[in-house]
Design a protein around this nucleic acid. Structure first.
Lengths: 209, 209
DNA sequence: CGTAGCTTTGACCAGCCGGTCAAAAATCAT
DNA sequence: ATGATTTTTGACCGGCTGGTCAAAGCTACG
């Protein structure tokens, strides 16, 4: 049989090499231009392959995009999963903030891919958002609520706390151009880390008394 | 002479009506699909005009987009311009936060148009970012710095404070889909307003002593 | 070395999309 | 009313883009 091995795990070494090449190239192009703005020719050029060769490994442009997004959803939530109900509340949250900021620094393409998709209504992610993501957020929000109730954290709306962490950290990847336009080309991440540490410490430290 | 009146101010009543129709339609389509994802046919349909008719009023698809963006840049910065060096520092900043959040609530399309453009590297806005926007931000950052120095605000990095206000407020427009996926379809803005009030109050209230 | 299966590609296609144009329709000035 | 001007549109075009296909090249293995 001659069937392109698109949806299943790659098997031969050359299949693994080329699907990885394609994923990397597609991430670069999709994150810079969005789904509709990206072309298969661009992705092929970036990957150093011919266009029909891309379509030998993935059945369509959309298949590549979906492949990237489904990978992304899980890895993107990993830092939140690590938040531990048994740790020190403030330390756990500050560590989560720093992990998330670190992801914006190391993986800005992934962040922008995500942002592009959400801003345009997440047509290809809505299921994941309402399922995996909502469940995890609700679970962690309950933990934060418990921390507030026990007086270990100053009282806050737990869901909006999580939204604010996403917002503030991803902003440094997604709006990178704007930030550099204002600050010049100096790397903003060290200052950002210090600022966010201060902001969340002041917001969450319970009133000493 | 027969010259399309595209770049100058509309004159006849019918010109004003149709350019406004087109702007409204284009805002809807561009904000939902991005520049590349939007088509002239979509915009024409949304405006209730024929495609050649669009191009009678605007010389190209890009001309419509640029028209929207240049309007946006100034109105988007208005809330920041209103921040008054002579007012009460904390109150001034909290009022700015609420104005900006209100804009996300009332004009989510404008916010998403802006976000789409920035995330993809702002190819058509970079000049405005490095000019008008940078100048205004530097000016207001100096005011905030003075407030911190005089002890009226807790010390913070002024530029990153401004970034955080942008990030947190625009998030509720740009990532609306994600927020509603987690919270359900209940309007999140009232809770957001309360949360942001708390967050910035705690962050900026100087240590009482 | 031969061959069976995996990989690569040049040539091609149909549909879409931004944009043009000439002519028709509507509007306006007198 | 009527001629001049503005507005509208159907028909069309060339280039791009996602995707196909058959044939050629390559690899692994007996």
């Amino acid at each position: 049989m001659n069937q392109p091995p698109a949806p299943m795990k790659p098997q031969t070494r050359i299949q693994k090499k080329n699907t990885d090449l394609i994923r990397t190239a597609a991430l670069e192009v999709f994150s810079n231009h969005g789904f509709r703005g990206a072309t298969l020719d661009q992705i092929a050029a970036e990957a150093g392959l011919s266009k029909p060769n891309l379509l030998y490994y993935f059945s369509s442009k959309e298949a590549i995009h979906i492949d990237l997004l489904s990978d992304l959803m899980t890895t993107w939530l990993d830092p939140l999963r690590e938040m531990n109900a048994d740790g020190n509340p403030l330390a756990e949250i500050l560590a989560y903030v720093q992990r998330k900021l670190q992801m914006s620094r190391e993986f800005p393409r992934e962040s922008r891919l995500f942002a592009n998709e959400i801003v345009q209504g997440a047509p290809r992610m809505i299921d994941g958002l309402q399922g995996e993501l909502k469940d995890l957020v609700d679970e962690k929000a309950a933990i934060i609520q418990a921390w507030c109730d026990s007086g270990q954290l100053a009282p806050v709306n737990p869901h909006h706390l999580i939204f604010s962490i996403w917002s503030l950290t991803q902003h440094y990847a997604d709006f990178d151009v704007q930030i550099r336009a204002v600050l010049g080309d100096k790397d903003p991440f060290d200052d950002a880390a210090a600022y966010l540490e201060t902001l969340f410490t002041r917001t969450l430290t319970p009133p000493s008394e």
